[in-house]
Write a protein that binds this DNA or RNA. Sequence first.
DNA 1: ACCTGAACACCGTTCAAGT
DNA 2: ACCTGAACACCGTTCAAGT
Lengths: 240, 240
Amino acid sequence: MTDSRSAETGKRRTTLTRERVLDAAMELADEGGIGSVTMRGLGRRLGVEAASLYNHVCGKDDVLEGLTDLVTGEIDAGVDHADWKSAMRRRAVRARGVFKRHPWASALIDSRERMSPSALAYAESVLGVLLGAGFSARDAANAFLILDSYIYGFERQRASLSLGDGIDTTQSAQEVLGAVTPDAFPALVQVAGEFAELPYDEDAVFDLGLELILTGLGERLVEIEPVEHAFRADNAPRAR
Amino acid sequence: MTDSRSAETGKRRTTLTRERVLDAAMELADEGGIGSVTMRGLGRRLGVEAASLYNHVCGKDDVLEGLTDLVTGEIDAGVDHADWKSAMRRRAVRARGVFKRHPWASALIDSRERMSPSALAYAESVLGVLLGAGFSARDAANAFLILDSYIYGFERQRASLSLGDGIDTTQSAQEVLGAVTPDAFPALVQVAGEFAELPYDEDAVFDLGLELILTGLGERLVEIEPVEHAFRADNAPRAR
DNA sequence: ACCTGAACACCGTTCAAGT
DNA sequence: ACCTGAACACCGTTCAAGT
């Protein structure tokens, strides 16, 4: 009652905060893509002039950094001490969940040059699992890089091909069939013909590729480690 | 001599052309990143008003599309009919060469939503090789998607971690060591400590991951195909 | 047919001025 | 301490006017 008339706008009930700015940025990104988070748009949504944001945030780059941080935090959440393969699987699933909720996230993460604070925490928990499973420092780093290349790369590929998420793949296949001169693109026509009938299961393909990599990394591990390590590797943390 | 004084500016010797606009865009991107290709900057480089570009190009999006086309054309060049694994390896090498010449390329390709003309040609040649090697339409599409997720994803990961290309990885590792509180990040410290001494060979890691995937895809192929197909599919031995 | 000049609707960021 | 108003240097794009 004593407060300024906040019922009118529905915003500005309290003073601005870095957190409130980032929340608004998240909403804008979820609604209209990363391109629609602008300082001016952010101000508009918060009922404030764009210039005012600079009291709580260092600039647009800081907003994007904060957004990256929030989103990689969502992926990192909840690391358990299961065997490394299922820990990596769980991580992949969580990442894909985040990309479903925030379709702009993978492009933003990929575009950042320096590691954000929560990216460090993320690396720590992944490397911790791998080292605990018996990977050498070098093999752990390799496995991390190879897995993430695939996990994040798959999402970008999916976005480029406008696959999945309620998109009718049989229809996209038919579009390709229509757009292309058949004798110049025989292989493309054959593949598109296949998918015009039976839809494409992107989740199954993702899992297939993930298992290929996990299996390959696992074989490399038993090649190198002595037997009792290889046995322990799947189940238990070793004392560090 | 009868021409307008072109010696003065060094530009504008001939009338503008879509091709000349795209060449200029390529130069701008190579020099200052994709962010520095703007319509106004393009006009400045070509000695022309930004508005004039609209006589040869449909807008900025068309410029970016043209750039994507040029660059995926470079990757696609020269498909041979070797066995599928070495064809895929060669493709990966060519892609990485392009990313070295044009560091902005992978992000641009990933950001495009619809397939450009040369992306269709690219898909045709890849799928052609895989089908020719005995892959079913479905398995060919899967292999294509999985491989490209890894190939392009690796490049984005490399860029995010500012790995390779003359960057001293032992130094970056030491930076990490300095920036982090050791007992909060034990795994990170252990791994960074390793790489502070022996540098990180990004090419070797890329090849490792690529071989994991190729091997996995190949095993899947022999599982399904009859023996004589499996033999044709790859001239490498199947015994493991 | 091609190019220019000027305009429009947007950006991010700075800074003196208000409260 | 926080916010505003106005300004600056940029964007992409349109369009009448020039040649």
